[in-house]
Design a binder for these strands. Structure first.
Lengths: 178, 178
DNA sequence: ATTTGCATGTAATCTGTTACATGATTCA
DNA sequence: TGAATCATGTAACAGATTACATGCAAAT
C-alpha cells in the first residue's frame, strides 16, 4: 500500500524539509495516527527520489555538515493527490494488546484486574490532558478552508477517542466489580 | 514481544483445539482487537510445541484426515498468566490511514471531502449495528467472575469506540462545512 | 571538555500478508 | 459431481523495529 510514501509526500507537499525534520514531524504532528523511525524514512526518501516523486538539494549547516532538503515534484504531488482522493474501505480494526488482555482478564484475581485497569486509566488520563493542552494552539477553530483544518480535525478525533477510552476503562472497573 | 504467542496460549487455556479452530477464533471472538492468518498460526504452533508451551495429539476427522488438537501445558499456562498479570505501559497510538488522510484533507475539494467522510460514516455505522447485534448473545450482563466477562468488556469497548468514531465523523462534516 | 542535539545512513531481526501447494470431507 | 468447507503446511515479500555506525554543531 506504500502508506509511508504518502505520509512523506503529504508532509513535503506542505513544506520542503530534510529527513531529520520529517522524522520530527512523525513524532509531533502525526504522532496520533502514524509513526516512522529514521531508519525507515531515509531508505524511503532514497526510493522516492529514484522514482522521481521528490528531489533534493544539499544545504550546509554550520561549516561542513550537509543536509538534504527534499522537495516534492509535480509527479509526486499528482500521485499524492490521486491517493488522497481515492475512496478506500475502512481498515480492519487495529491490533490492541490491552484489549487482548482484557479479553482474558477473567483469569486474573480481582486485585490484579483492578491494578490493570487503574494503571491504564491513569496513563490515558495523562494523554488526554496532554491532547487538550495541544488544542490550545488553536486560538479559534480554523475555518473549513484553512490550512490547519486537517490538524484540527485529527486532534479533535484524538481527544474524543481518549475520552471514550477513559470512560470505557471506568465502566470496566464498574462492571468487573472492583 | 511475542503477542501472537500469548493470544494463542490464552485461547488454548480456555479450550484445547486445532490450528484451524484457532484460526476461526481469530476471525470471530478476537476480531475486534487481534488477527492472524493461518500462515502465521501454524508456524507459531510448531514453535510453541518445541518450546514446551503446548502439546498436541492427532485426531481423525472422517476416515483419513488428520488434525492436531493442541493443549496448553503447565509451563504454558504459567507463562501466559505471568504475561497477563504483568503491568505494561499503554501502547503507542496505532497507525490509522484514514486519520492520515483527514490530516491532509485540506488539499481536497469540498465535494471530495464530503464523499470521504460520508463513505466512512456509512461503513462505521454498519459495523456499529453489527456489534450491537453481537451484544444480544448476552441475555443478561455476565457477572464479574463469569468466564464471559472478558468477552463482554471488549465488546462493550468496541461499541463505544465505534459510536465515538461515528460522532467524530459527523463532527468533521460539520466543522469542515459540508 | 562534555553532553545534547543535528544529521545520515545500513544491517539484522521480527511481524505479518499474499501467494503457493496439497488433499479430505460434507452437502447440495 | 461440483462447490464449500475442513485441514495443514511453506515461500516470498512487505513493513517496521532495534541495533550498529559515524560525525558535526551548539551550549554549558
Amino acid at each position: 500500500m506504500r502508506e509511508l510514501k504518502y505520509a512523506i509526500l503529504g508532509l513535503l507537499n506542505q513544506k520542503s524539509m530534510s529527513g531529520y525534520e520529517l522524522s520530527a514531524e512523525f513524532e509531533s504532528a502525526l504522532n496520533e495516527f502514524w509513526s516512522a523511525k529514521h531508519s525507515q524514512i531515509y531508505p524511503e526518501l532514497k526510493k522516492l527520489t529514484q522514482e522521481g516523486m521528490i528531489t533534493y538539494e544539499v544545504a550546509i549547516s554550520g561549516h561542513v555538515l550537509q543536509k538534504k532538503i527534499y522537495t516534492i515534484t509535480d509527479a509526486g504531488r499528482e500521485d499524492f493527490l490521486r491517493w488522497l482522493a481515492e475512496d478506500q474501505p475502512i481498515s480492519p480494526t487495529p491490533k490492541d494488546v490491552f484489549r487482548l488482555r482484557v479479553f482474558f482478564s477473567g483469569e486474573l484475581t480481582p486485585q490484579q484486574r483492578r491494578s490493570m485497569f487503574e494503571g491504564h486509566l491513569a496513563q490515558h488520563l495523562a494523554r488526554l490532558s496532554y491532547l487538550r493542552q495541544q488544542m490550545n494552539k488553536f486560538d479559534t477553530p480554523p475555518g473549513s478552508s484553512s490550512p490547519e483544518i486537517g490538524d484540527y480535525l485529527v486532534l479533535t478525533g484524538a481527544i474524543m477517542r481518549e475520552e471514550t477510552t477513559c470512560e470505557w476503562l471506568k465502566k470496566c472497573m464498574d462492571l468487573a466489580g472492583i
